[in-house]
Design a protein around this nucleic acid. Structure first.
Lengths: 195, 195
DNA sequence: TGACTGACGTCAGTCACAGACATCATCTCG
DNA sequence: CGAGATGATGTCTGTGACTGACGTCAGTCA
């Protein structure tokens, strides 16, 4: 006989997404989420630092996937190539079966500025972590920051496209294309940095 | 005989920055800010949609400066070159006399995640606006988004460096350098997008 | 068996924000 | 010149996000 149902964070996360998707983020209170899975508001805030965080549970795994890709890049790879390796590795965290779920989640985020802020902050934090990893590999400060943040830009754009209705390509494939486009784009800046 | 002192938003903004800088953002209540300039909490929230927003008052002018630069770019300029023009124009909004003030403000933001979130969201919003402007010039969707977001990345990095203790170069100069470095970096991605 | 721990509940409090309504100097127009 | 419109403000009141302090109790382990 167990005292509580196990997996409180997961149950809260699932219930929260469902409620947010139907009623909207602001129209859903933390108390409602907690009660819908037989818990109290206080317990909700023990698992998640704030109401928004429940939607971002598990992001640490994405960071680790990214870093694993960075670590696996060949020693002579350029910063952008290292980031490309990170992107490819991170993309494995979003298999095509997750597309529908990701779409639902993103729809909720896209409807609420507060959630967009949190998402951007998460991406920026990952970018900082990647930049640290690049620096640890000997990349200089500016190049590391630029490459890492550009990688986050590419990831964000690729993810948005991966989510699109009718899209069938894998996230990794899209990310590679977007990164390629970035390279092409900057290559056309003939009047800048052509040193 | 006037009923109220004029310039309520400006007075609130000034007082808020001072209080945030001394006591910290979270340790300062909206009521305190308002009372310090002889107003009430309710009036504070009439001028600013939330407590964080008081630090971002006037960002619209930055957007307009950016857009003016974009509009002034030659018709045959590449997306990156257009963004470069926008950056140069936007940089004029931060003359060197403002360095100390910007430094103080940024120190407050850097200490609080909630403020960082707002800042990132503002930057992203500007990026979206620039992307729209690029698309209006005929740049395709992906290139416009990539160029605009990259521009925001460059702006952010350049601004951080402009703020650094001991830095004497202008923001425009630093931004041009950072953009050049981005072009150089992506040019080294020999295994990617070399189509 | 008894102390200990971990996950939870209860209670009370602070503060960010928002709606409704009153106030009053200034402005507008007949 | 006087009545009503206007706009920025104050007052009052409520909700919901979060927090600290404390109590509870099943399972663990010495």
């Amino acid at each position: 006989m167990v005292r509580w149902e196990p997996g409180a964070p997961e149950r809260l996360q699932k219930a929260a997404l469902e409620l947010f998707a139907t009623r909207g983020f602001e129209q859903t209170t933390a108390t409602e989420i907690a009660q819908s899975v037989g818990l109290t508001e206080r317990t909700f805030f023990r698992h998640f630092s704030d109401k928004r965080e429940v939607l971002f549970y598990g992001q640490q795994l994405l960071v680790e996937a990214f870093l694993a890709g960075v670590a696996g890049a060949p020693p002579d790879a350029s910063p952008i190539e290292i980031v490309a390796a990170g992107l490819e590795s991170a993309a494995t965290f979003f298999p095509d079966e997750n597309r529908t779920h990701s779409r639902t989640r993103q729809a909720v985020i896209d409807e609420n500025p507060a959630l967009q802020e949190r998402e951007l902050h998460k991406l920026a934090t990952i970018g900082t972590t990647i930049a640290d990893a690049l620096r640890a590999r000997g990349v200089d400060e500016l190049a590391a920051t630029l490459a890492a943040q550009s990688g986050m830009t590419v990831f964000g754009i690729a993810f948005t496209r991966w989510i699109r209705e009718g899209e069938t390509r894998s996230l990794a494939g899209i990310a590679a294309d977007v990164l390629g486009e970035l390279v092409t784009l900057t290559g056309k800046a003939t009047r800048i940095g052509d040193a």
